[in-house]
Amino acid sequence: MPKKNQTDALIKQLSGEWTPVEPIAHPLRRFCPWLVFSIIYVVAIVYFIGLRPDMGSKMYDSIFIFEMILVFTTGLFSAVSAAYMCVPDMRGAKWLKHVSFTLIGVFFVWTLTMWGGQGFAMPDQLWAHCVPKGVMIAFLPVAALIYMAKGGSTTQPVLMGTLSIASVAALAYMGLRTTCMSDELGYIFFFHVLPFLVIGTVLGAVARKIFRW
């Protein structure tokens, strides 16, 4: 038998029982249903909890509007980055993670700037009332995002876990800011941001186990 035919026979023998694989959809196509689901879910929870009474006047507060736009953009880019990270080479869109981390950095610089401007006041309020709300808002979107991420094969599990939490944290932050009356920076940091930093750190630490393939 000619050598080429031998090689062909060997390949056929080794791959004889293989079946074609169904390629996963483009990351953006996989991500869109999650985004739509998460926004509807968060809006429903916010509707259930009730908008903050001064929401009407807040819509004319340029600082509040800037904060919301910044957080939404951060969440959006983080989620898109996490979706692209399901593919080993991120389909060449590695710049997305840099944009996401830059936006996260801008958010923390913004927080520090506000700290310099208005101080780090902590109101005397029942601490727990925003944490359960935040968990309620974040639980299903983060579960859906992890499920979606496990469908792929990431080569950056820690980054993907961190960005997944960042995206869900952004949604929850927006939900909390539109339902909670407190504008004190200390309260916002400790009860709207810090729980998600902790969850993100924990998920980052176990990401290699969760996203193992």
Partner: peptide, 20 residues
């Protein structure tokens, strides 16, 4: 073998393989 489903034929093979 396990991640074949993440390879897209409209993308170059080398960066995908190098990432793995």
């Amino acid at each position: 073998h396990k991640s074949l489903h993440t390879f897209s034929s409209d993308r170059p093979f080398r960066p995908w393989l190098m990432s793995i």
